[in-house]
Nucleic acid binder design. Structure first.
Length: 574
DNA sequence: GCCGTTTTCGGCCCGACTGTTTTCAGTCG
């Protein structure tokens, strides 16, 4: 069985967990965690590279030892260090680390003094009142462990960005109206536009007399208060979403925003850079000795260490700091750069609104063209168009285009890619189409090689324009299909077709790191709403967030082109 | 375990809050 990067990352994570429980050197543990992250995010399969006899690329934070372990894992399928550690501490003990409030020291004490190996055993010990007898533990710790394990049933899930947005917007408005509040910003992974958020991080500045902390704790959506100090507080909302609030003075707002936006890895890298310059960065500012030299704005914080401001979406320690140093930060795409949308549905298949309403809604959002791409006939569940209904739709588009000014409808189809890679194109009507979107909606479980060949074959079709939602994943619901995306991205470049970044918040597919690869390979991406109703165009904002996380500039996105340029691009490959 | 335009050894980001203590360790972000 081939070893994927995710497998290597999982092994390094488990090693880090076990080392932590053993009380190993924290920096050694960090090295394993860093390696897990770097390998997990790396765009090319290390196993495949080594299998082809290629050298392991130089990855940041991975030196001789970890390289050797990667080789060992790829060639033998396991790792001697991990086997040894598992012999010393049962692997199930690492599960205990996931319980809030339990870190390596406490887990180690529970294992060594009470022989606790599983959450179930821990629960029993807590109920018997034996936890409180351990040194360093007390009644409150025992009670919070009990509660945490019982709550573990509805386990800490991550919320899709769109869902979190609803809670965030309401809370933001509430806080902005508290007396004495100056600034309120949603920071954290929300500001970085990650596809899911684990919690909301809110930064506030206010006059010292402001009751903002009490008001936050008293917000009527609060179900539970986890902690509440004078400058920091954490609550859980009735929805289950955790919210952390941090209060700072205006003079520190930029430094606090930088710190509270993260990512953690990015912040560590920034602080290390500062250290090399004899500076110290904390959430109150940038300090030279005891003198604050920056911190009111984020720009001032970055400037103090010789960097331009870095967009939040890039702050993942994936090369943005090096790019900033070299003056090579991308000029990231913005919503206003989009001139059209190449994927939308109407009442004719599974949409909710008419052709005319969709056209007007797109126009109202500043778009100048919209491809109507209802489903092809084989997708019965979505009421795919048969040739008769298809012909009627094409005629109606002609009539609307003659009538409407300022928006042009393109004739398209979201065509089923069948199991063998052939396309479910409408008989006798293909020549009337401006655009053909190929999509996988069936046989998600094909083995990697077959799935890849299926898509490559579909893309070989002369009329193929665009691969819809390339991984077919649904966030928190359906895993991505097994496919060699690097090969597909390269084939698309050669073939002159494009990959979609589907903006539906539950899809956001192509994901960020693959957008980065598409850009590197010179393959164009289309940021499409896949709107099934007029409100669906609002999702473009989520797509843009993901595109920015993938380092995409307007030039990397095909639907920032004018309609004339777009048509030239399409005809060049047919 | 990684890393180096002062370094191949000696560093490795920084602070708030809680609970168990009685000055601080552990956890978290």
């Amino acid at each position: 069985m081939p070893i994927h990067n995710a497998d290597i990352a999982a092994i390094f994570e488990e090693i880090a967990d076990l080392l932590e429980i053993e009380g190993a050197n924290p920096f050694r543990i960090r090295a394993y965690r860093n390696a897990a992250r770097v390998v997990g995010e790396y765009g090319r399969e290390l196993g495949a590279l080594l299998g082809q006899g290629a050298d392991l690329p130089k990855l940041p934070g991975i030196g001789a030892d970890l390289s050797g372990k990667i080789r060992e894992i790829v060639t033998t399928g396991h790792c001697a260090l991990l086997e040894r550690l598992r012999g010393e501490v049962p692997a199930s003990v690492t599960e205990l680390l996931k319980i809030p409030g339990l870190g390596p020291k406490k887990v180690s004490a529970l294992y060594h003094d009470l022989a606790v190996e599983t959450p179930e055993q821990l629960l029993r010990m807590a109920r018997e009142g034996r936890i409180r007898q351990l040194h360093g533990f007390g009644e409150k710790t025992e009670a919070s462990i009990l509660q945490a394990i019982e709550a573990h049933g509805n386990k800490a899930r991550r919320y899709p960005l769109a869902a979190a947005t609803q809670y965030a917007t309401a809370l933001l408005a509430y806080l902005q109206h508290v007396p004495g509040v100056h600034q309120v910003t949603l920071a954290g992974s929300y500001r970085r536009r990650r596809e899911t958020v684990g919690d909301l991080d809110i930064l506030v500045s206010a006059v010292s007399s402001s009751p903002v902390m009490q008001r936050f704790l008293g917000y009527d959506e609060v179900a539970e208060i986890l902690s509440g100090g004078t400058t920091r507080a954490s609550v859980i909302l009735k929805s289950g979403l955790q919210v952390d609030l941090r209060l700072v003075e205006d003079v520190s707002y930029g430094a606090a925003l930088q710190y509270f936006t993260g990512s953690k890895q990015h912040s560590i890298a920034i602080r290390t850079l500062a250290q090399e310059r004899g500076l110290k960065i904390n959430e109150y500012g940038v300090f030279q000795g005891k003198t604050r030299i920056a911190g009111e704005t984020e720009e001032s914080v970055y400037a103090a260490i010789g960097l331009p401001w870095i967009a939040p979406e890039l702050r993942e320690d994936r090369g943005e700091i090096e790019a900033a140093r070299a003056g090579r930060l991308p000029h990231l795409i913005e919503l206003a750069d989009l001139r059209g949308d190449l994927h939308a549905h109407t009442l004719a298949s599974d949409g909710h609104d008419s052709l005319r309403d969709m056209a007007l809604a797109a126009q109202a959002r500043g778009l100048t063209y919209l491809a109507i791409t209802d489903h092809s006939s084989r997708l019965k569940v979505a009421h795919g168009l048969d040739p008769l209904r298809f012909r009627r739709q094409l005629d109606e588009i002609d009539r609307l285009n003659a009538e409407l000014a300022g928006i042009t409808l393109l004739k398209g189809s979201e065509v089923e890619i069948l199991e063998d890679g052939s396309l479910d194109l409408p008989e006798g009507l293909t020549d009337r189409l401006d655009i053909v979107i190929g999509a996988v909606h069936s046989h998600f479980g094909l083995p990697r090689a077959k799935q890849t060949e299926r898509i490559l074959r579909a893309m070989d079709h002369q009329r193929f324009t665009l691969l819809a939602h390339p991984f077919g994943r649904l966030i928190n619901e359906r895993e991505p299909i097994e496919v060699d995306m690097q090969r597909i991205i390269r084939a698309a470049r050669t073939r002159g077709c494009w990959l979609e970044l589907n903006a539906q918040p539950q899809r956001l597919d192509l994901p960020d790191t693959w957008c980065q690869m598409a850009k590197a390979e010179g393959t164009l991406v289309a940021v499409n709403s896949d709107a099934h109703g007029t409100a669906g165009f609002d999702d473009l904002l989520f797509g843009i967030g993901q595109a920015r996380r993938g380092w995409l500039a307007a030039d990397d996105v095909v639907n920032t082109r004018s309609l004339a340029d777009l048509k030239l691009l399409i005809s060049a490959t047919m």
